[in-house]
Design a protein around this nucleic acid. Structure first.
Length: 671
RNA sequence: GCCCCCGUAGCUCAGCGGAUAGAGCGGCCGCCUUCUAAGCGGCGGGUCGCAGGUUCGAGACCUGCCGGGGGCGCCA
């Protein structure tokens, strides 16, 4: 149990419950101490006693309950707050269990469920644009977090592959002829294809008439029409697949469950609503009237499931999807990552599904809504010409910008390290993968980092900045971790090769450079192996641990090619036995931060708010950077401190990488 | 007309009913013979849109205004 919050809650929870059943402890992080307990103030009110007296009593009881195993200081302050300072020993214990835990402290849910997450949902035969970006990115983060918490997740990409627009698209494809059409679809931009069909539809009444006829043929299952439709949809799905792969989401074409899938179920939905007595005819349309919704005249607002000409609506499809997900898939959590304008629609659909008994009491449906993406000018995000920003072009620009920054940095480094042993060449060689990781990571992080219910302002310079709450800043902290570990590993290998010679170098190690320095470090690394053996079986520990995949959640998307490498790098250093109680303030702060990972994940999932995890990772990266600035690792004052700090580094790297992976963002080893 | 979301530092944003409201950017000052300075430290910067109310305690909860965005019966 690494989480201090959980440990303190176990102490204070029973105390408050004992004084007044159900009373909240008001335990939370504090700016004046590590944590504070506010509950005594409210409790004093209920008990009619002076707050400070109650606080003292609570504190006494907490001490009886083992508080001092967690804290080194606990005092009543101000009007009746209790300020808590964690003990270094407790922090060390937390670090040890965290280092030994492949899940880094994240517990599996006590009540795992099967969940369906509905996200991305682009429209077939149209380019994806930034509007689909948020859904894909937020949805993917939710999927990964649910999985990490032990839930079984089924991803569904509810692609718009049915309905009226396909009449004109199919008709246009038909007009082009099989050969020409296939060619168009193969090489052409789908957006152009859509525009061409649209233009034809608008200017040619006979074409429009045929297009409407096509819709009927499509719904009737006409073979030739279906064949053309299939070609269109497959082409679109391939386009989506490529885009999602590049974005680094978990979505593949296997997750596509388009609207067309529900088509055969729609008549049954309406029929069953009728049987349940929920259907009302209004102006020729079949409607459900869930209570609590009204239109502009103040009259009950209908959910139309069949329009006056007999067609089904997206409400019908959504109801069918609920039945399918609950009954066929056995899901008990339905998550919809769809824009905020759909709020009322989902409220009504969920309400109707409850009324019909399709959403049982033990099932939960959640609309995870999000705001729009705005341009730097604060208006809807569009190209300079006023058109829709295409996703592919957006990602290209992100990668281009990242590449420029990386190249500029590589050049600067070349000057600084003139004559050095050429990491620059390696950086240049890997620059494409890095540019993908940084550029796409920046776009995704910017989207996740602010409260999803707000509109968010798209700003290249801010999202790619290395300063502030950005992906590059966090990735950079991770790269610094790797840099230290690489050198430490190098020293370890050096020791194996020339252990004997290393001995003499130790005395000069402090000033030593180059080969001599390596030798000195190598000598220490050997000693580390010996220390490790105190806490477990001998020297193989390093090797055995090294093989353990610390990045167990799998590599993050995009340029995730390096993910496994960082895990291998950390392995030898994630040794619980080497952890010392943090002594320096920066060590202490970093340790506390590391132990808060599970709490951050839990808080994020509780409200489906990825920005909370972003905030945590930013704080962690900041804590690590402070530690990095103030606490030398490889040149630590003594061997024990060095080993312990290496564990802190390895754990920081593991949490940063894992946290970024939950957001679907790569953690490169070098930047 | 009704409903929903938003309004916090010059800008972009955090903020869990609790103590003196926090970051980052931008501005000013300082720190690289030392593990990646794309970094770190410091300084300045706020009647939390306005007005009432609830509470021992409100940026947070309630009501009403003001401002911005969105939705409100046969598109999805």
């Amino acid at each position: 149990m690494a989480s201090p919050l959980a440990a303190l809650d176990r102490v204070f929870g029973p105390v408050f419950d004992g004084l007044l059943p159900g009373a909240a402890s008001g335990l939370r992080p504090s700016q004046r101490a590590d944590f504070q307990v506010d509950g005594a103030l409210a409790l004093a009110r209920s008990l009619g006693r002076p707050p400070r007296d109650v606080a003292s009593e609570v504190l006494e009881a907490a001490k009886q309950g083992g508080l001092m195993q967690v804290c080194e200081e606990a005092v009543v302050a101000g009007p009746g707050f209790i300020n808590l300072t964690l003990s270094p020993e407790f922090l060390a214990g937390g670090l040890r269990s965290s280092a030994a835990d492949p899940d880094l402290g994240i517990a599996k849910s006590a009540r795992p469920v099967r969940a369906v997450v509905d996200y991305a949902s682009p429209n077939a035969a149209k380019q994806m644009h930034v509007g689909h970006l948020r859904s894909a990115i937020i949805g993917d983060a939710i999927v990964r977090l649910l999985e990490a918490s032990g839930h079984e997740v089924i991803r569904e990409n509810h692609v718009g592959d049915w309905g009226a627009p396909f009449g004109m698209l199919i008709e246009h494809l038909h007009d082009l002829g099989e050969a020409e059409g296939a060619h168009e679809l193969a090489v052409g931009d789908l957006e152009n294809f859509y525009q061409a069909a649209r233009a034809q539809y608008d200017r040619d009444p006979t074409f429009a008439e045929r297009a409407r006829g096509r819709v009927v043929l499509l719904q009737a299952g006409d073979p030739e029409t279906l064949k053309l439709w299939e070609a269109l949809v497959q082409r679109s799905v391939s386009h989506f697949d490529a885009a999602f792969h590049r974005l680094g989401t978990k979505l593949t074409r296997d997750d596509v469950v388009g609207e067309s899938y529900y088509n055969p179920m729609l008549a049954g939905v309406v029929a069953d609503l009728g049987k349940a007595g929920l259907l009302v005819e209004s102006d020729g349309a079949m409607c459900v009237f869930p209570p609590g919704f009204s239109n502009r005249e103040g009259k009950p607002l209908p959910l139309i499931v069949q329009n006056s000409v007999g067609g089904y609506t997206y409400a019908t499809t959504d109801l069918a999807a609920i039945r399918d997900r609950v009954d066929r898939l056995g899901a008990r959590l339905l998550v919809y990552v769809v824009g905020l304008p759909q709020t009322q629609h989902f409220q009504m659909v969920f309400a109707a599904a409850r009324m019909a008994g399709w959403l049982p009491d033990d099932a939960e449906a959640v609309h995870v809504g999000f705001g729009s993406i705005l341009g730097p000018d604060g208006k809807m995000f569009r190209t300079r010409e006023g058109g829709t920003v295409k996703l592919a072009e957006l990602l290209d620009e992100a990668v281009d910008r990242a590449r420029s920054l990386l190249l500029a940095r590589a050049e600067g480094e070349g000057d600084a390290q003139a004559g050095g042993a050429g990491p620059v060449g390696g950086v240049v060689g890997a620059i494409e993968a890095l540019a993908e990781a940084v550029g796409i990571g920046a776009v995704k992080y910017a989207d996740l980092a602010s409260d999803r219910t707000r509109d968010y302002r798209f700003d290249w310079d801010r999202m790619l900045s290395l300063d502030g709450n950005t992906a590059p800043y966090i990735q950079y902290a991770h790269a610094r971790v790797c840099s230290i570990l690489r050198r430490a590993v190098g020293a370890l290998e050096g020791a194996q090769g020339e252990g004997a010679q290393g001995e003499g170098a130790q005395g000069e190690g402090a000033q030593g450079e180059g080969a001599q320095g390596e030798g000195a470090q190598g000598e220490e690394a050997q000693g580390e192996g010996a220390e490790a053996s105190a806490g477990g079986p001998a020297g193989e520990i390093g090797v055995a641990k090294a093989a353990r995949p610390a990045g167990g959640a799998g590599t993050a998307g995009g340029g995730g090619a390096e993910g496994d490498g960082a895990g291998r790098l950390r392995g030898p250093f994630l040794q619980p036995a080497l952890v010392l109680p943090p002594a320096e303030p920066e060590e202490r702060e970093l340790a506390k931060r590391l132990l808060g990972f599970a709490d951050a994940v839990e808080a994020t999932l509780a409200t489906y708010s990825p920005h909370k995890l972003c905030g945590y990772l930013f704080d962690l990266a900041t804590s690590f950077t402070n530690f990095y600035e103030h606490c030398p690792v490889l040149r630590a004052p003594d061997r024990g401190t060095r080993s312990s700090r290496l564990v802190l580094c390895a754990l920081s790297g593991a949490v940063l990488e894992r946290g970024l992976s939950f957001l679907g963002i790569a953690a490169p080893e070098r930047m």
